[in-house]
Design a protein around this nucleic acid. Structure first.
Length: 686
DNA sequence: GAGCACTGC
């Protein structure tokens, strides 16, 4: 890094620099009672027209900009108009926090207790009652509900919110609801004609809510459904592009930040970066440059923000900025949709993000890629909007206007980018095939073939791709099919208790072991206490057991301290313990004894894992590299693994991610003989 | 030699 102070660096030239120096007003407004606020929302003016349209049409596409109030108001309008009938209004959300906080907001607006008229339902947490009419649900929850109630008969209206995000689960619902609506209409018509008087099935109304201009596509899919538009309400954000394209976005972000810091009035700065590595490096350079500024200049408070950051450090961004300081938040895409940071007036957008994409291989041994790429127009607009939450804001794009115009309109839907194993299995349970279901965007045929192959290898499907009893059992576990296979395999090896402990940790959303890049030595020595010679799976089990032993006698704050000392993520442990409860009760339902234990014996556990991980395994080659057992890729053990640098005859692993190399993460060493008999077709007779 | 973000009764 150069040692110049930022002032001596050449300025980045943004178009319309003049406008940047003009006055900066701030917003203010007296807070008003909830009902008055409701009436003032942009959507309130269109209430009657909206109800009329929804009443007259089976499907309505509602396009609402940020701040229109559509997500909180439309369900209430439906209720007030009597359109819930005897059923419920479900509103789906891609994120849990959105579902729970929206439900709380709407309950407050109606002056009722959460869980009475208005409730929510997400994994591990359901606040609903017999009189609940408006229910906010995570989209994954509604997919699970579909498996036990294929017509979703409890709901009169289903609102798919944030449909533009095109998550795999929303796409799954968009496709399923189309055929459900036909079936329910037929059933209801039959009832009217007296053909099936016992039927309680009523017609279903579908409302698709979206924020971007993909409306025509949703409309075409639902037989040219009506599209309604609602204006939003956001403070204006002035957008600047660079005059010329930038070669190094981290360097450019550094310069742009100090231009704002030195020239612009108070207000916090949010910088969007693709990942942890860039965030850490920019954090260091901003701090070192800020130290060289004259004492008269406002101090800088740098706050990194990404999902795997320990919660205590994440909390910093929500605390008020100390006076005479400027907060500078360095964030990934987490700040684009998942969290809203108060006080942000300036956004710096590098135009980059990381994207996970599944690469299927015809050999069946595919892997995920996690690479930095350009964002989309939709994403650029969303990022800019983060500057206009509380008052007029400014967005500095570190790319030219021409580059912006050349960005893709929106992200490719998840169904085209990720492994489809679980979705194929879920559809099989509903008696359908992913190849024949009508999706808005059909999945790639190679991904479908890869998913079918995986399901066949783990025994969920038979030779004619028919669902096996084993496959149906796997689908009842709320984990990836290969993890469910491991649990089922543990039954024969008598170690379900140990296996469920490990699977719960693997299925958690974040890693058990914290990774703080400048404390890696301390982390390695803390972890050596738990280290098991076979590798990461049993090391995780040792860590979990040590935590539980400690937790029996210690109080909350000393548990927290213990986790900190051992660099364990307490949030992961808490999540894993909840997942474990679910898995234990699922075991009960499918007739497995989760108490079965082989104590400290490693062989049964590793044998069980090998059954589910045959496809995720590699053999040591004479040249010291590892090559996939099923597939042709050479893989490296991830440096964070307890087996990094170790040479063992064979490994199994949780996932394969291509970043700089193809890395195997979550690795254990197993004897090659364990593969005998667990795979239907081994290549080369190895 | 090192991880974007979500979700599951």
């Amino acid at each position: 890094m150069s040692l110049h102070t930022p002032r001596k660096k050449p300025r980045i030239h943004f178009d319309d620099d003049e406008g940047l120096r003009k006055s900066h007003s701030t917003s203010s407004g007296p807070s008003s009672p909830l009902q008055k606020q409701r009436e003032q929302l942009p959507i309130a003016k269109g209430r009657d027209a909206l109800i009329r349209e929804i009443r007259e049409n089976d499907v309505t596409i509602l396009l609402g900009e940020t701040g229109s109030g559509k997500t909180t108001q439309v369900p209430q309008y439906l209720l007030e108009a009597g359109m819930a009938g005897k059923g419920m209004v479900a509103v789906t959300q891609p994120r849990r926090v959105a579902a729970t906080s929206l439900a709380a907001r709407v309950a407050a607006e109606r002056g009722v207790k959460l869980g009475s008229l208005v409730g929510y339902s997400v994994r591990f947490d359901e606040v609903c009652g017999a009189d609940t009419k408006i229910k906010y649900v995570s989209d994954g929850m509604l997919v699970r509900e579909l498996l036990s109630d294929p017509l979703l008969s409890r709901y009169s209206v289903i609102v798919l919110d944030e449909a533009h995000e095109r998550t795999l689960r929303t796409d799954f619902l968009i496709a399923s609801l189309k055929s459900i609506q036909v079936k329910r209409k037929q059933a209801a018509d039959g009832k009217r004609k007296g053909k099936s008087p016992s039927s309680e099935i009523n017609p279903l109304k579908i409302i698709v809510m979206s924020a971007t201009l993909d409306a025509e596509k949703f409309s075409r899919f639902y037989h040219n459904a009506r599209i309604l538009y609602v204006k939003g309400r956001q403070h204006p954000v002035k957008i600047f592009h660079t005059a010329v394209s930038q070669t190094d976005y981290v360097e450019s972000a550094l310069r742009a930040f100090f231009q704002i810091h030195l020239d612009q009035p108070p207000g916090d700065v949010l910088i969007f970066l693709p990942g942890q590595e860039d965030i850490e490096s920019l954090e260091k350079t901003i701090i070192s440059h800020a130290k060289r500024l004259p004492v008269s200049v406002t101090n800088v408070l740098v706050c990194p923000m990404y999902a795997s950051l320990p919660p205590s450090q994440q909390a910093r961004i929500f605390s008020a900025t100390p006076s005479k300081m400027r907060k500078c938040i360095l964030a990934t895409n987490i700040a684009e949709t998942s969290i809203t940071i108060p006080g942000v007036k300036y956004v710096i957008d590098t135009g980059k993000c990381k994207e996970k994409r599944y690469l299927s291989k015809d050999t069946g041994g595919g892997f995920d890629t996690l690479l930095t790429r350009d964002i989309t127009k939709a994403s650029a607009l969303q990022r800019a909007g983060r500057a206009g939450r509380e008052g007029p804001g400014f967005c500095f794009r570190l790319y030219t206007e021409e580059a912006f115009n050349n960005l893709a309109a929106s992200l490719e839907p998840e169904i085209r980018r990720c492994s489809l194993t679980q979705s194929v299995l879920e559809l099989k349970c509903l008696g359908q095939d992913l190849e024949t279901v009508e999706f808005m965007d059909p999945p790639d045929i190679n991904s479908v073939i890869a998913a079918l192959k995986t399901l066949w290898i783990i025994g969920a499907l038979g030779n004619s791709n028919e669902l096996t009893p084993l496959g149906r059992q796997m689908a009842s576990f709320p984990v990836e099919p290969y993890l469910a296979r491991i649990i089922l395999a543990s039954s024969a090896h008598g170690c379900t208790s140990e296996v469920i402990d490990i699977v719960s940790l693997l299925s958690s959303s974040s890693s058990l072991f914290l990774d703080i890049s400048d404390q890696r030595d301390a982390i390695a020595s803390a972890r050596s206490k738990f280290r098991h010679p076979s590798g990461d799976h049993l090391t995780m089990l040792n860590a979990l057991r040590a935590y539980q032993e400690m937790a029996e006698t210690e109080n909350k704050s000393s548990r927290k301290e213990w986790c900190k000392q051992h660099f364990l993520n307490e949030r992961t442990i808490a999540e894993a313990l909840k997942i474990r409860d679910q898995l234990r009760s699922t075991c009960g339902r499918v007739g497995l004894d989760w108490r079965a234990s082989k104590k400290d014996s490693e062989e049964p556990v590793l044998r069980s894992f090998t059954v589910g991980l045959v496809q995720q395994s590699a053999l040591l080659q004479p040249d010291g590299s590892y090559k996939q057992l099923m597939g042709h890729s050479v893989v490296k053990i991830h440096p964070g693994s307890t087996l990094a640098d170790k040479k063992v005859p064979a490994i199994i692993f949780d996932e394969l991610v291509y970043t700089n190399h193809i890395y195997a993460r979550g690795v254990s060493s197993v004897p090659r003989s364990y593969f005998n008999g667990v795979t239907p077709a081994l290549p080369n007779g190895s």
